[in-house]
């Protein structure tokens, strides 16, 4: 008999070594997430995927599935906390959706729509962050970085380059570039690298492509993030 866990009353199978997130995606169940991408090592830092496992909060993307776990994924409390965590990400950086090239394709925005977020709730930090437009093909706008670490992992795990790293401490955390000048143009990043395309927000953008699809016709203008996420990640699992 295969081993099972229960998510919101639904019993689903899992394999040894799978996380709760892996098992959920395989069973076509969406658990909100931003820093997780099944193609990379789980990170567990955004905390949007927090679920209640036998009464205790755990990150679904890193916590192993174990026989008999009773998991709550959707509850008023969890949805409320997820919305607040998303609002934290919005006030920490400088996110002005209407003026952002990524609008409609941004996962942070997609999550905010999904969680029915109508305001930022918390006071803004108005952090003074910079842009790096030095690279001929790729632009970094640090105002929009949410420290998901996906570019760091993509560059290490897929591109085998180590272009990005996380530095600083606490609220002064920042993304840094592995080049002598600290500028993107002097790094090994290439337009064909996975790391150049992995950013869930508008922090890493490919130049001269921003408006090829009109606003209104973009991914999250048309579909909710749970559909998109499952369509992409469930397929990856098969």
């Amino acid at each position: 008999m295969s081993q099972t866990i229960t998510i919101d009353g639904q019993e689903i199978p899992y394999e040894e070594g799978q996380t709760i997130m892996d098992a959920a995606i395989a069973a076509n169940i969406y658990i909100p997430h931003l820093c997780h991408n099944p193609e990379y090592e789980p990170h567990g830092s955004c905390k949007l995927c927090t679920v209640k496992v036998n009464g205790r909060n755990c990150s679904a993307c890193t916590f192993p599935a174990m026989q008999g776990q009773d998991i709550i994924n959707h509850s008023d409390d969890l949805e409320h906390d997820r919305k607040r965590i998303t609002q934290m990400l919005f006030v920490e950086g400088n996110h002005f959706c209407p003026a952002c090239e990524k609008t409609g394709n941004c996962q942070l925005q997609g999550i905010a729509y999904y969680l029915d977020m109508h305001d930022n709730h918390f006071p803004h930090f108005f952090a003074n962050r910079e842009m790096d437009a030095s690279h001929p093909d790729i632009l970094i706008d640090h105002n929009r970085c949410i420290f998901c670490n996906l570019c760091v992992r993509a560059s290490q795990e897929k591109d085998h380059k180590n272009v990005f790293a996380i530095s600083g401490r606490g609220i002064n955390k920042c993304l840094i570039i592995n080049s002598k000048s600290g500028k993107l143009k002097d790094s090994e990043l290439d337009i064909n690298d996975c790391a150049a395309h992995i950013c869930p927000t508008g922090a890493i953008l490919i130049k001269r492509t921003g408006y090829q699809v009109p606003i209104g016709q973009r991914t999250y203008d048309q579909h909710k993030i749970d559909e998109i996420s499952l369509a992409k990640e469930h397929k990856h699992h098969d």
């Binding site: 401490r169 606490g170 609220i171």
Partner: peptide, 21 residues
């Protein structure tokens, strides 16, 4: 706590600074 938060996870990184504010 705001000074010593390592910054890894959102609730602590942003939350301890919001608590301070």
């Amino acid at each position: 706590f705001a000074h010593e938060s390592c910054g890894f996870c959102t609730p602590c990184r942003v939350g301890t600074s919001l608590l301070k504010k």
